[in-house]
Design a protein around this nucleic acid. Structure first.
Lengths: 242, 242
DNA sequence: AAGTGGTCTAGACCACGTC
DNA sequence: ACGTGGTCTAGACCACTTT
């Protein structure tokens, strides 16, 4: 075969792309099983081992979840194990906190310069803005301000948010068919402004972690811009470096 | 069926353990090539594919680095690509900063309660404490206080630190034969004390990122405890969530 | 018993770097 | 030309789950 290097892509990566396409197209829903490796091998006319390698990579990227004896499943934020994958705040005593999300506000707006750039939408395009408080048991720990593309999130209201008893991302997934794949965070230390200090029940100017997150769905498409202010007096942001 | 699962470990993991042992024993030094997959297969009496899978995992864990056509190499902090793997501070304009490490102090001490617990050594055992300033070009950005087990770091002096023109971890590797594998960080927001504020050339009480890091070598052995205070006025701590 | 993912093997060939 | 890692295949068998 004439295999020119510049465009060379191994078979298993092409298969991976095809599976990814099917995922994007919603051929299989989050939480559901995808076809067996053998079926996919037949469908794509490759050996089972090649499909396996494609799925291996996707499992490593948290797109799929393998379960021996049962099958391979589309990863879901409704799965308890992946529920708070993106929340890295931990109590000082390393206990597992009981989280409670309290939506404060939810309103429509138009994308400004920064929001349009980050969310890759037209300036002036409709967006939704959500403010919410996160509590660990009874202690307030995070205030989030969340910017979402209005086109996708039509029908998002404070009532919808308040009636949802699980994580935001599982709501986005179930209600808006939007699966969050990965995120980029920029972390800084800032002083609490008056309004935030009141909500978090601390003095003004208390040092807070500012966590600015851009979240992406399939195809590296940005679909959420969020800024969280984390109280770190009795909690810490945990990060593992490999 | 006879269910022997409790102790079941696939062959490739046993091979992985054996390679790990050889690494710990220093059979191959950082930066050097390990034997070819075929040689290892013969040595351990398994197929090349099984060795391959073992190495795959170790490459994913940044213990080994594969180079097509050349061989597989022991990962090293002297490798420019891995040099600043653990430093996540980035300028706001996303440029690649020119880093400069300025050792400030280096003295002997005895492990207190906390240091002995974290470094898993006896209370009162000798430790080394290093303070250093990190600059990006001419801007001071981080003050670090670093606690090291004295037994391993005999011969570490301010002069040694000052004469080293590369990263600390590459010094530890070259001079003390200690390779840092992974680290855990606890991040908080704090207010700058007077001394730190002066060194970082900012007003007292400026919000800073407190980054407390425990670094581990082979076998999950803790060998460094470090607290860094990061100035995040023109820089941010970058984290990718998957 | 049947179906799924997980392991292990053996062999062929490709892409890359070096001699 | 040769040795290295990288890909692909085919088949056998193991471990886990469900029927």
């Amino acid at each position: 075969m004439a295999q020119e290097s510049p465009t060379f892509s191994p078979l298993y990566r092409q298969i991976k792309s095809l599976i990814l396409q099917a995922l994007e197209a919603g051929e299989w829903r989050p939480g559901q099983a995808i076809p067996s490796e053998q079926e996919l091998a037949v469908r794509f006319s490759v050996s089972q081992g090649t499909v396996r390698k494609a799925i291996d990579e996707m499992a490593a990227e948290n797109l799929l979840v393998r379960k021996q004896g049962k099958g391979t499943f589309v990863a879901s934020h409704s799965d308890p194990r992946a529920m708070f994958r993106f929340l890295r705040l931990v109590p000082d005593d390393d206990s597992i906190p009981q989280r409670e999300s309290i939506p404060l506000e939810c309103w429509r707006a138009k994308a400004g310069h920064e929001a349009s750039r980050i969310l890759a939408i037209e300036p002036g395009a409709p967006i939704m803005i959500v403010r919410r408080l996160l509590r660990f048991a009874t202690t307030p720990v995070v205030v989030d301000e969340i910017y979402l593309p209005g086109e996708i999130f039509q029908g998002l209201t404070l009532e919808v948010l308040q009636s949802w008893r699980s994580s935001l991302y599982s709501l986005f997934e179930s209600r808006f068919g939007l699966r969050m794949i990965r995120a980029d965070e920029k972390i800084r230390a800032v002083a609490a402004d008056k309004a935030t200090a009141e909500i978090l029940e601390v003095p003004e100017a208390t040092p807070l972690l500012s966590v600015e997150r851009v979240t992406y769905t399939y195809g590296d498409r940005p679909v959420e811009w969020r800024r969280g202010l984390y109280l770190t007096e009795a909690h810490y942001y945990h990060n593992e470096l490999n």
